[in-house]
Design a protein around this nucleic acid. Structure first.
Lengths: 201, 201
DNA sequence: CCACTTTCTTATCTTTTGTTAACGTTTCCT
DNA sequence: AGGAAACGTTAACAAAAGATAAGAAAGTGG
């Protein structure tokens, strides 16, 4: 895929949040970069500041932490979703999360510095503020549901909910990553699946 | 406390996000209401749209769901924090959460309709957009940490972290609410506390 | 001030999850 | 193609959490 196709996809997807006119888009797009990741490359690593927000044109990433020498996968991103270590990006402090490409990825990114420049530009400031607010609000809604699932549901119920709504994750991610995502071990998820899918035991 | 004192506190606290000049504040504050809740009254209830964002001047609330006839407390808000059922407010759809006063509360609120009016007012739009973005981003950071705690920590580790950083919750909330907040039962938290605080068993 | 509710702990028992290890299968890499 | 790594399941055991109930302590509201 060439750069201009990718940018057009981005512009189209952004209409969900904000509709730039031609003049605005010319300036906005000057702050964008194309970023390609080979499988297993990192978009972000613990100890480093994640100073970019990416939009996934093609590919998938997973977010994971290391605890006691073990990888624990907390999240995934797919096509047409944003990718960043939000807290690190917003605070400018080093993050704790690996963000790793699971397939070759094509990303469109802007840096925090570019964001600041856009917010300082009267041509763009208002729409970029709105863009930021809407993306942040959408993110909050996802988190609200996710936290509620940890508070009110058992691991088995979380799996069933994912089974009914999370086809992308189930289809495209290995099961031991999904187990982490649900807050349980891979062995435990294997047992839950036997209970749920076969009715045995 | 009288209304003007409360509004001054609000204005002062908002400086963390945005600094309104006199003219702006006059307009902004016309969209604010004072809202008092007696202990046990509800700020929001399941099945109803939460169409207000509140700022807590005085008091505390808890957020809870009902599951299988049981209350499950998911969150708390204290003085100088925002209070809303974010998803319901943003989508305009009925929420699932009770937000209940645990003490008599003094709140400053604006409705979604007022927010729309402010965003439509060129005098305020830019600063209110920014205000919304910054509050949303702060909320995301809290959620990111909270989800990480469910993914990477055991209930005991979550309790210890709260013990080291969450003095307000520990000091002001009954233990069975805290248990829910940590994603466990009150009985289980009582056992964890014995293990942790006495070293027994 | 007294009854009533709420809160917390403890005990017992059951269920679930974690841990570790083994095994077969699939996928990956060169 | 062939060796290595990754993946999913299962088993056995230990550890933890859930459910339920009982009782003590603290707080609440007439």
């Amino acid at each position: 895929m060439d750069a201009s196709t990718a940018l057009n996809i981005y512009r189209e997807q952004l209409k969900k949040y904000i509709d730039f006119n031609e003049a605005e888009w010319i300036i906005f797009s000057q702050h964008l970069s194309i970023n390609q990741l080979k499988k297993k490359q990192y978009f972000s690593e613990p100890g480093k500041v994640c100073d970019k927000v990416a939009f996934m044109i093609k590919g998938t990433v997973r977010y994971y932490h290391i605890k006691d020498g073990q990888e624990i996968t907390g999240y995934f991103s797919f096509e047409n979703e944003f990718v960043t270590s939000y807290k690190s990006f917003l605070t400018g402090l080093p993050g704790l999360t690996y963000i790793q490409a699971l397939e070759d990825c094509l990303l469109i990114t802007f840096t925090h510095r570019d964001l600041d420049q856009m917010l300082a530009n009267p041509m763009l400031a208002y729409k970029v503020e709105k863009f930021g607010r809407l993306v942040a609000e959408e993110t909050i809604i996802c988190y609200e549901d996710r936290v509620a699932s940890f508070i009110t549901q058992t691991p088995e119920e979380r799996y069933l909910q994912l089974y009914n709504t999370g086809k992308d994750i189930l289809r495209r991610m290995p099961q031991h990553y999904i187990a982490n995502y649900l807050g349980i071990t891979p062995v435990s998820l294997s047992r839950i699946r036997r209970r749920v899918l076969t009715g045995v035991k």
